[in-house]
């Protein structure tokens, strides 16, 4: 059998070795613009990494994308426009915060759904009529006293 895991392992070569610290020249001189670029970068997935944002990663591609984000921010693109630019190239996969569309309704409404189910169940339990509990036997009474001591 063909070693499939090998194919999976080497499916893609990532561009260059990961580096720990990026280039200071990358940062925008304008503090507000730099912060905005960071905020946008944190919404975007580093595609060659496992689960990091473009801002966190030191892969070559992430660095390129960071640079592009900064160029576009400097050119006056809104956050939405920068993200749309990325989505046009890499699809919704690049967004760490998925857009709200029918596909993600269940995802985005999951907090509400969970609360409704939980609250509904608790509400039902509240409405339940008390079942007549059999009186405690003397032995049970003693056991209970022991327990709650």
């Amino acid at each position: 059998m063909k070693p499939l895991w090998l194919a999976l392992l080497f499916a893609l070569a990532l561009a260059g070795p990961a580096r720990a610290v990026s280039d200071p020249a990358e940062m925008l001189p304008d503090r507000a613009q730099e912060l905005r670029a960071e905020a946008v970068g944190q919404q975007l997935r580093c595609l060659v990494c496992q689960n990091e944002s473009v801002e966190d990663s030191d892969a070559d591609l992430a660095r390129d994308l960071r640079r592009i984000i900064r160029t576009r921010v400097q050119a006056g693109d809104s956050n939405k426009q920068v993200i749309a630019w990325m989505v046009a190239r890499y699809g919704d996969f690049v967004r760490l915060r998925p857009p709200l569309r029918p596909l993600t309704w269940v995802l985005w409404f999951s907090p509400l759904l969970a609360l409704l189910i939980g609250g509904g169940a608790a509400g039902l339990a509240l409405r339940r009529k008390p079942a007549a509990a059999p009186p405690l036997s003397p032995a049970e009474r003693k056991a209970l006293a022991d327990l709650l001591r």
């Binding site: 893609l12 070569a13 990532l14 561009a15 595609l47 060659v48 070559d60 591609l61 390129d64 994308l65 592009i68 190239r89 890499y90 699809g91």
Partner: peptide, 16 residues
Amino acid sequence: EPGRVAIDWGVYGVPE
């Protein structure tokens, strides 16, 4: 060499 056109193609590694 800069890898900029590759980004326009949605390339994220090689080979693609």
